[in-house]
Amino acid sequence: MVETARPTPTETVAPAMTVPRREPRGYSVRTLPGFAAMAIFTFVGLYAPILILVTYSFNAGSSLAIWEGFSLRWYYQAAANEAVQDAAIRSLYLAFCAASIATVAATMAALATTRTRRFPGKTMIYSLINQPLMIPEIVTAVALLIVFAAIKVWTGHTSMIYLIAAHTAFCVPFAYLPIRARLETMDTTLETAAQDLYASRWLTFRRVTLPLMWPGIVAGLMLAFVISLDDVVITEFVKSAGQETIPTYMLGQLRRVVTPEVNAISTVILMAGVILVALFFRLTSRRR
C-alpha cells in the first residue's frame, strides 16, 4: 500500500480490514478442549513408528535401536539379495496379473449393476461382489488352502495360477468400488444422446461410456494393485514352496535375524504405495 498524507475514503477502509475480525461463535470441533492434544497424539501414534522404520533403513550399523550414521548400505544389500529380487519380481507379476483380471471383471460387474434396469436380486449381487470385504481374510485363506491343496494333489500342478486366482478374488471389490462410483456419477443422458446420434450399443460404449469411466478404471486398477502387493495372510496360506512374495519373504526374515534390510524393503514398498494411492485420489477427486 502506498502511504499518502490524506487518506482517501478507500484507504480508510483498508486498514480496518487488517484488524483481526472476531469469528462468529458457531460450533467447531477446533474449539473443543483437548482437541490439539488429541490430534497430536493421534498423528504421533500413526506416523512415529513409520518414521522410525524409515529412519533406521538408512542406519550404517546393523541395529534397529542404535543409530550409527547415515548409509544406503541396506538398500544396496536388499537390491543385491537374490531372494529379495526373486520375491519382488513375483510380487509385481502377481499384482499385475491379479489387478488386471480383477479390473476387467470389476468393470463388467460395475456396468451390469449400474447400466441395467432394476432386476430382482440386484442388492444381493452387490453384496456378493463385495463379499471379500466382509469375510475375514483368514477364513478365505483357510478355505482356499483346503480347496487348492486338494486340486494340487489331484493334478500335481503347482504354478502361480493359485496365487493369481486368490489375489484376483479379493482384488475385485477394490477395483469395483471406484469404477461403480464413477459410473453412478456419470449422466446416463450422454449414452442416450450417443444412441440418438446413430451410435450402436458398442460404439456408444467405446466412444462415450468407456472414455468417461476411464479414470475410474485406472483408479480401480491401482487400488487393486496396491492391495495385491500388500497381502500376507492369503498369500502365506495359498503359496506353494518357493513362491515367496515380498511380504511373505519379510515375514520369513523376521523369524530369524532382523536387520535394517527389512526396513529398506518396507520403505520402498511404502513409497510405491504412497505414489499409487496419491495418483488414485487425484484420479477420483478430479471433477471430470
Partner: peptide, 16 residues
C-alpha cells in the same frame, strides 16, 4: 433410436 432419422436436443444438452 440409432436407426431413426430423428435427433434430439436434450433439456440438459447432454454434450459429451
Amino acid at each position: 433410436p440409432n436407426q431413426r432419422p430423428i435427433n434430439t436436443v436434450f433439456q440438459n444438452y447432454a454434450l459429451f
